[in-house]
Amino acid sequence: MLSNIGIPGLILILVLALIIFGPQKLPEIGRAFGNSLREFKSATKDLADDDKEDKKK
């Protein structure tokens, strides 16, 4: 999905986000997105570990 965007498309998205949200709000949004992504990765890793433990039993 994201492989079709390319560098010009990514720059356009970033410029639009900067215009819409403003320079003060953008770092907060990025931080929140990063935290959400980190929590999602942790949850999926926990589920995968639980699945591996169930298969061992």
Results as ranks from 00 to 15, higher is better:
22 G>T: 02
47 L>E: 06
47 L>S: 05
32 A>W: 04
39 E>V: 02
9 G>A: 10
20 I>Y: 13
22 G>M: 00
45 K>H: 08
42 S>I: 09
1 M>F: 03
53 E>G: 01
23 P>F: 15
34 G>V: 10
26 L>V: 11
14 L>T: 07
16 L>C: 13
32 A>I: 05
40 F>M: 08
6 G>F: 03
43 A>P: 00
18 L>W: 04
34 G>C: 06
28 E>W: 05
7 I>L: 15
40 F>T: 11
29 I>D: 07
54 D>I: 06
12 L>F: 07
24 Q>V: 11
38 R>N: 15
27 P>L: 04
36 S>E: 10
12 L>T: 05
42 S>C: 04
41 K>E: 12
31 R>A: 14
35 N>W: 03
25 K>G: 01
12 L>A: 14
47 L>D: 05
23 P>V: 15
15 V>C: 07
32 A>S: 07
21 F>L: 11
5 I>L: 02
1 M>Q: 02
17 A>G: 11
13 I>F: 04
48 A>P: 00
3 S>N: 08
2 L>C: 05
2 L>N: 08
13 I>W: 00
6 G>D: 03
15 V>T: 14
25 K>I: 04
36 S>D: 08
18 L>E: 07
42 S>A: 14
9 G>F: 13
18 L>V: 02
54 D>H: 09
12 L>K: 04
7 I>H: 07
33 F>M: 14
30 G>P: 05
36 S>V: 04
45 K>L: 09
44 T>Y: 05
10 L>K: 08
57 K>D: 12
49 D>C: 03
12 L>R: 03
27 P>G: 02
27 P>W: 03
41 K>C: 12
35 N>M: 11
43 A>R: 11
31 R>Y: 13
40 F>N: 08
21 F>D: 05
57 K>I: 01
34 G>A: 09
27 P>H: 02
5 I>A: 01
42 S>V: 09
54 D>N: 12
4 N>Q: 14
33 F>W: 12
18 L>S: 11
47 L>M: 09
30 G>Y: 13
7 I>W: 10
16 L>N: 10
51 D>F: 15
36 S>R: 06
57 K>Q: 12
27 P>T: 00
